[in-house]
Design a protein around this nucleic acid. Structure first.
Ligand code: ZN
Ligand code: ZN
Ligand code: ZN
Ligand code: ZN
Lengths: 132, 132
DNA sequence: CTTGACCCTATAGCGGCTTCAGGGTGCATA
DNA sequence: TATGCACCCTGAAGCCGCTATAGGGTCAAG
């Protein structure tokens, strides 16, 4: 399987696959006579794992850990769970921040309709208090 | 006022202030005999505007536009409002994405407690279907 | 034999800063 | 006066997770 096929199968850009290889997330595959990368099923599996993890919001650093952990089938999964919990906590922080932001912006936008800069509620909210 | 004072007043790192100057968001101030930057009230006002905008989720590019628009007090504020609306739309997309992510992660985490990697629900969700 | 889709490498760029290396300044204290 | 220390300076590189660009090579179909 060539890099383009792998890209299509995993919904990943070709450049991203090469990037993962350079980052040692995905092992370097064999090459054909024309120096094209040739991938096996194992690569497809591993890349799928990486992409799903990324889609779930794990950082590449977390993905690295998860990949390492996933290999020891008999080990307890406490560490996996705690990485996941950390991810959720991070998401919660972002949700709270964004929610507050949204509220504030909507309030400003609501009460300003078609007037001038001089009394635009948004500009007013941004500008420092006039020093009189 | 020296750069450290300005930093304290606006809750901004010194390096960030120098970065804004290089980016021409904040005009280069005068210098004292020792080549230290010396800021005036106008700088404080402008930096406050920038920081509040950033805190509200505007990109630096949007901040640039807002700063330009804020100067023409008589102009209509339609453009300001549409930049704000774009910001809200962006926030809404992020909120939706993060919400979905959270749901999925929580569901996985909930149904996996203290078992091994071999039957960890999270690893299972990440790993591609076993080729039997 | 040419076209065009695909592949290769190496390097730089994105946003929005942060960090680092290697200095200089300015004020208080011993 | 010397010394310590907090603060300031510049320029360049680093962070994340890719993406894009330049400048080529490979390969199968028509
Ligand atoms: Zn209004
Ligand atoms: Zn307005
Ligand atoms: Zn379970
Ligand atoms: Zn688990």
């Amino acid at each position: 399987m060539k890099i383009g096929d792998l890209a299509r199968l995993t919904n990943t850009r070709v450049e991203t696959i090469r990037f993962y290889e350079k980052e040692e997330l995905l092992p370097a595959p064999g090459r054909n006579k024309g120096n094209y990368r040739i991938y096996e099923q194992a690569h497809l599996n591993r890349l799928s794992f990486i992409r799903r993890s990324r889609d779930l919001g794990f950082t590449l650093e977390q993905v690295r850990k998860l990949l390492k952990l996933a290999d020891d089938r008999a080990a307890p999964c406490t560490e996996v769970d705690s990485i996941t919990a950390a991810n959720i906590a991070e998401i919660d922080r972002k949700l709270a921040d964004l929610g507050a932001l949204r509220t504030e912006l909507v309030r400003k936008l609501e009460c300003c309709r078609g007037s001038t800069i001089a009394d635009c509620r948004i500009i007013e909210a941004l500008a420092p208090a006039p020093s009189k």
